[in-house]
Design a protein around this nucleic acid. Structure first.
Lengths: 341, 341
DNA sequence: ATTCAATATGAAAACGTTTTAATTGTCATT
DNA sequence: AATGACAATTAAAACGTTTTCATATTGAAT
């Protein structure tokens, strides 16, 4: 398999390279007889076309790239399954790129994607206005791109996106906590650069306000989207002058850290403190107690987002733009109960 | 930015395309004056080279692909960090491909990688002899490829790989359980296609045998590498005629499922049953109780595996082959204690 | 001033494919 | 027997770069 080219196959089959190309791509346009010769030559050489040359000449790679914050985030398992499912039926391959939490999102995407490496991009990572300016120049995109799960900044709201209504979901969870009798509800949110958790924060604040409940100073605290960040945040919350009876975490990842820390402080959940999460990752139902959380239809988001990307690749003019919301669901498990005091 | 080519830049700068190319790639070979002209033209057009054409012509992409079972597996977070760290210092970009647990590993890799898409592959996923036959034809590889974390089948043991000694680590854990006083130790392993967990199983069996302990029928059970699989396996274990006092899970993921199920059966951990895991994923220290497990130096594995890949890309002849072991560590937390009965 | 070396540039080939345009061959219709 | 239509094939252009080779320019040394 020492790298045969189409030329070798052509010589071996006794035809021109054009015929070889047609034999492989549009076999119906070549006669039975010659097709057989070509196929034989292909088999004998073990020839497989140089994809790079192929993509270069065709001007299309049949490859889409999904950008996500980090491999190892359980939430994306199902989203990817959905993406892959529809990609496969359309002859697209999927390739993944990490932003490692924002370090170089913009650069990477700008430099390696815009320049013809892939036919389109699915952004599951934080969408900064800066990053996408590169891509969405002059209102018209130079590369098909759609956003999934994440919140897009207002000025980019025309970008096609598929997501749950994060603010509404967060409100719903907060309402649920309130309905359970909680009045002192704190929130562990993400860093300010995370628009996603900002949205959830907004929902929380709205619900609190609607119920005329006070959000005390220090009750909305940055958990950095990590377990350890959430543990630190939880310590701060527990040691504050005014201790909440419930902690709403903007992600399950942080809820897991929070849960651990609350227990480490010898408090029981939900006995002493209720904890709510968000995302319904697979670990959420095996914590002790299992987490009450918001479930996102991750697989469906994946499917939809990929379908919209395909639309856009096919015909970027007529493809729909703007946000598309999918339903979320409040999953009641055991980490939330009525407050005891 | 409507897709300028090098030709446009050349025309605008009033030089030949060769000069433009040189200006960008080997600026020291072009005079100050013309370089300035070119740079200006580049700026004015917003030109960025067509990567596809570039890679095609150069015969190299500066892209490596890492193949892993699934995005969403927390274990790979750190491995990727390591890989990326050294890739970045060498001017390589990293792109990720999922096998979705083996469905089409071989095909994907065979078809899209061998044909010039990437300069090399890091396999973090299960290495079947079948899959790699394609890549390692005639003893000599046609694409630089190295294996990380995973066990390679004996007939492919010449493939460069970086991993801990899984069997030894599993023995060590088993020995530890025995040292704690356990005699009745069961193991939740992976499906038979997972060479990795088979290795761990071997270590377990060896340690049991060395201690002259009996492995009863049904005590090595397939947990399918998933939480739910492990829960089912645990149920089977608990309802068996002869109940173990300790359960050694071949992955933390399964240990988490096991832990939940044991508690669901109203048994305490480690009071009634001890549980040990493997991998030390980040969730392992926030379970209740925190998991005793084996820690892999994931970041280091990533770095080493990427370095070996670079060696191989640079000079496939002289690059080292064969396995390279890195040290593991037994992390003692609270999920294992002496048996009570 | 003249020559030589070094440096800077341009023209064109090359990479492996797809695709267009031109050519050949075949067959049915007149 | 000649024409036309159609199918199959070939030759060659094209894609956007990099790189080789030849040429032109510069500057230094005689």
């Amino acid at each position: 398999m020492a790298d045969f080219s189409i030329k070798d196959v052509a010589r071996l089959a006794g035809v021109s390279i054009g015929t070889v190309s047609r034999s492989m791509n549009t076999p119906e346009k070549v006669s039975q007889k010659t097709r057989a010769k070509v196929e034989d030559a292909v088999r004998r050489t073990g020839y497989s076309p140089n994809r790079l040359a192929q993509s270069f000449r065709r001007g299309r790679t049949n490859l889409v790239m999904v950008v996500l914050p980090s491999v190892g985030d359980p939430f994306f398992t199902e989203v990817m399954r959905g993406i892959r499912a529809v990609a496969e039926t359309s002859g697209y391959s999927v390739v993944i790129e990490e932003t490692q939490f924002n370090t170089m999102t913009a650069d990477k995407i700008g430099s390696m994607l815009v320049s013809n490496q892939t036919d389109g991009v699915i952004l599951l990572a934080s969408v900064s206005p800066f990053g996408t300016e590169i891509m969405a120049s002059g209102g018209k995109q130079l590369l098909p791109i759609v956003v999934g799960c994440e919140t897009v900044s207002p000025e980019l709201s025309a970008l096609p996106s598929v997501q749950i209504d994060n603010a509404a979901a967060a409100s719903e969870m907060t309402d649920y906590l309130i309905a359970q009798g909680h009045r002192r509800i704190a929130m562990i949110s993400g860093q300010s650069s995370s628009l996603l958790t900002k949205d959830r924060e907004i929902g929380y604040r709205q619900a609190m306000q609607a119920a005329r409940l006070r959000v005390e100073d220090g009750w909305v605290i940055d958990g950095g989207l990590t377990i350890n960040g959430a543990r630190a945040a939880t310590r701060a919350l527990l040691s504050g002058k005014s201790r909440p009876s419930a902690i709403f975490c903007a992600t399950d990842e942080m809820a897991i850290g929070c849960l651990r820390e609350v227990k480490a402080a010898s408090l029981s959940v939900p006995g002493d403190i209720s904890i709510a999460g968000f995302d319904d990752i697979r670990y959420a139902e095996v914590t002790d107690p299992p987490l009450t959380t918001i479930s996102q239809p991750a697989g469906e988001i994946g499917e939809r987002v990929m379908r919209r990307l395909l639309d856009r690749i096919k015909d970027s003019e007529s493809a729909s733009s703007g946000r598309e919301f999918v339903p979320h669901e409040l999953v009641i498990r055991e980490s939330v109960a009525a407050p005891t005091n």
